[in-house]
Write a protein that binds this DNA or RNA. Structure first.
Lengths: 152, 152
DNA sequence: ACTCATGAAACATATAAAGTTACATGAGGC
DNA sequence: GCCTCATGTAACTTTATATGTTTCATGAGT
């Protein structure tokens, strides 16, 4: 099954924006992500509604971070995307009349719920600021501004 | 994203087979699952290879359980399906050159691994026999043979 | 007025699960 | 031996959805 990579993508965008003041146009960000500007606008729309980013039109417009990175978790970003389903497997029928199916669903649902809860919990433990910190470690001595160099 | 319901489906099939001796034709099972015989054969193929079920051609042929239900877990069944990916979300790129992407992947991968491990672990705790027991509870006073009645 | 940016709708593409058709293979029953 | 019934398998169709693309409207700045 094809995996939804919007969370991965939007995090990438946010981390690219973090060290510089901005604003960044959708086109700039799209180049960095090797995708289309419209895709950027699409995945950023949810974040704008929750106030994590701002967007402005016209000359000098684009996207700007509008939140405290140490207050926003990966789970928040996930929620901003509309909380798409986390699991690739699921029940055949959601409210079956068949008792067999009910028994199967009950067993699977329990496992599914646990796994989803754990995943959400883990995502809730990581803030964007922490991600940025990890990034700086990976950069080592290099200037933070070089992050985007390879996207030129 | 469309969810893979093969595990749910094959468990349904196995539970339907459990209380009766069989063999069951793909067509019978397909009717019970409201699907196509070829779909049944497809999802049963993996289980046959692992020896959980047997299949026989010709008159009086069909599918027969060939394992100790108390020894086979939902995880085993999942593995018999080829261990399809469990998560609906994932990283944009698996082995990125971009340091930003690496940082994002590292954070997400950890959460993904934990959730997958927990889900597999939960599936490993439930045997087919336990599922059958739960089903009998749901059936209450009714005869086990009535399970399939509504599929007629 | 012109340019640059987002906003949004509409359409195209890619991928994978699920459903379907068609036919080959082999196991009884006659 | 031939016929019927069942699985085995390949090929194709359908459906859902993430992703990509085109197009145009809207509004901000020069």
């Amino acid at each position: 099954m094809r995996r939804d990579s919007r969370l991965s993508g939007v995090l990438h965008v946010l981390l690219h924006m973090a060290p510089q003041p901005g604003p960044f146009t959708s086109e700039t960000l799209a180049k960095a992500m090797d995708t289309n500007p419209v895709v950027i606008r699409r995945i950023m729309a949810g974040l704008r509604e929750l106030g994590y980013v701002r967007s402005e039109k016209g000359h000098g417009g684009g996207w700007t971070l509008a939140c405290d990175l140490s207050k926003v978790t990966l789970r928040d970003v996930y929620a901003a995307l509309g909380s798409p389903s986390l699991l690739a497997i699921g029940n055949r029928t959601e409210a079956p009349g068949c008792l067999v199916e009910q028994a199967v669903n009950a067993a699977l649902d329990q496992a599914f719920r646990d796994a989803e809860a754990l995943l959400l919990s883990r995502l809730g433990e990581v803030t964007l600021a922490m991600l940025g910190g990890d990034l700086r470690k990976r950069l080592g001595s290099r200037n933070v501004r070089d992050i985007n160099a390879h996207h030129a």
